[in-house]
């Protein structure tokens, strides 16, 4: 990332300022009607006021709960099932076609079903939030478990490592980078789906608040909340990348990055 150099930081800051300036000018000059595109300063001021309201923090909390619960369910289920399926060759071959069929089904396709079964609730949102990240992690676990170096496996066998030791010292280190990558992808997909579900289903959270402001119509509030969702996404990315560096400090891909 270019943020590590001072030149990169200055240019990046210039880029942000340039974007805000363009936005401001486009709105103030009447290029775009201000009812549809409030000026950058108006939106940022509104964002400041929004941060002072309890409703905003309640919505943010709801979003974060749905997101974390959904991600946790998807991740744990995917790791458990993926490890079992990945370690048993017969299961891997028998489930392959089914997995390849279920995986590309867009998760929004189950929104109507979720609403019918669970109503306009967090449970309905969770059904949507769990689906896509589950497959993302599941496939990564399969790849990770399959990637064990044959030489290392034969070595372990000739040293008569037991089942547990092979899992601990052979499969886990090989699969961990894949699993963490899966978690990183899943975390951002789960966030996107959480907000999508709130927008479409209408369970409490930032997404529903966005829809409320759109219907009001309250353009400044709408833009302010969209900025918040973007910020949330950036935070999730940063956090998962940090987790990756922490857990995989021993892995060549992370060590190489540090040396550069």
């Amino acid at each position: 990332m270019s943020w590590t150099t001072s030149r990169g930081r200055v240019l990046g800051l210039l880029g942000i300022l340039g974007f805000l300036a363009t936005w401001e000018v486009a709105a103030r000059s009447g290029l775009v009607n201000q009812t549809y595109l409030p000026a950058a300063t108006t939106t940022l001021a509104r964002l400041g006021r929004e941060l002072g309201t309890p409703q905003f923090w309640a919505a943010l909390g709801d979003t974060l709960i749905t997101w974390s619960v959904g991600l946790a369910i998807a991740f744990l289920a995917a790791v458990a099932l993926g490890a079992v399926v990945g370690l048993v060759p017969f299961l891997e071959r028998a489930t392959h076609s089914t997995v390849e069929f279920l995986r590309p089904i867009p998760s929004v396709a189950i929104i109507p079903l979720a609403v019918l079964i669970a109503g306009l609730s967090r449970e309905a949102a969770l059904m949507v939030v769990v689906y896509a990240p589950f497959w993302q992690v599941f496939v990564q676990v399969l790849h990770g478990v399959a990637d064990v170096d044959p030489v290392a496996r034969d070595t372990a066998r000739s040293y008569r490592l037991g089942r547990y030791e092979r899992l601990r010292h052979l499969v886990l280190p090989t699969a961990l980078p894949y699993v963490i990558t899966g978690l990183r992808l899943a975390a951002s997909v789960a966030l996107i789906l959480t907000i999508t579900a709130e927008l479409v289903i209408g369970n409490p959270g930032l997404g529903r608040q966005i829809e409320v402001y759109r219907a009001a119509p309250d353009a400044a509030g709408l833009y302010a909340l969209v900025l918040v969702t973007g910020g949330l996404g950036v935070l999730v990315n940063l956090a998962t990348r940090m987790l990756e560096r922490r857990l995989l400090f021993w892995h060549p891909s992370v060590r190489k990055e540090k040396a550069l």
Binding site: S2, L14, G15, I192, G207, L222, Y223, V226
Partner: peptide, 29 residues
């Protein structure tokens, strides 16, 4: 390189905005 450094923070941000959150914005526009 300079263009990349200029745009990188903005790109990181826009990538992170859930695309569905843009639906109401684009409906307005």
């Amino acid at each position: 390189p300079w263009l990349r450094e200029l745009l990188e923070p903005m790109l990181e941000f826009f990538r992170a905005v859930p695309p569905v959150a843009l639906v109401p914005v684009l409906m307005l526009l």
